[in-house]
Design a protein around this nucleic acid. Structure first.
Lengths: 127, 127
DNA sequence: CTGAATCCGCGGGGATACTG
DNA sequence: CAGTATCCCCGCGGATTCAG
């Protein structure tokens, strides 16, 4: 038989589920191409907004700011504003951001390593 | 001065650019949450369509088929059809797919390791 | 059970203009 | 230069239906 307690879940279970849903939310935030490309572009460097826009090919003004806000909110990038004129804003990966970059690097490596496989797979797909 | 040859790019440059654009295309295909979650769900196992739908929480019928086709086209998953009734279709990661999974695992590990950091960062963001 | 096709609403995301 | 706001459209993606 199932008790009410089990149905509602123990406190520890509740914590685990909360952590899982949070993890899922973070994953969904981060697992999109623009976020990953931005992280990859930053690397060890610190770049200005306009430099990032040039670096991340094809990203629009809007998507760049949007993703930068999101990354900042999650503490993956730090935003340093220089009170000059014209304004100068620099973005840098934080420690968590750099840790994530390592895995993004791995993804990029993977992409290049399997370029051949994939191209061939695509060729023989209509068969 | 810039020669016409330089403007058009040498053949090797053309190859490099083609490879880059292809790499970018593959990256864009793969760097979306459903694709990554599917890869993660598959892991070492081989799962049926309906099992995958249950496993990957929140994915719709349509998104699942769509991403599975894409992954199959790129040779990341193999699709085995059992000619029974009712039909039984099993999906398994190929070698390239398993290689990518390793990096997705790393991303998941990252998510859990930095849950605390991120939660704290979010808290002190409205400041 | 798997999967293709259709309909359709909503939001992602581009272009533009405006502030500091 | 950096960022926000507004408009607007196209396409993602959900629900449903039909086929094998």
């Amino acid at each position: 038989m199932v008790t009410k307690q089990q149905l509602k879940g123990l406190p520890e279970d509740a914590d685990l589920r909360r952590a899982d849903s949070l993890a899922r939310e973070i994953f969904s935030d981060v697992a999109n191409k623009w976020a990953l490309l931005i992280i990859e572009a930053l690397g060890e460097r610190t770049l200005r907004f306009s430099e990032l826009r040039d670096e991340v090919e094809g990203v629009s003004h809007k998507m760049l700011t949007q993703n930068l806000r999101m990354l900042e909110r999650n503490g993956l990038v730090s935003r340093k504003v220089h009170p000059t004129v014209p304004p100068r804003v620099e973005y840098t990966l934080t420690e968590p951001g750099r840790a994530l970059r390592a895995t993004v690097d791995a993804m990029c490596d993977w992409t290049h390593r399997y370029l051949g496989h994939i191209e061939k797979a695509r060729g023989s797909f209509g068969a």
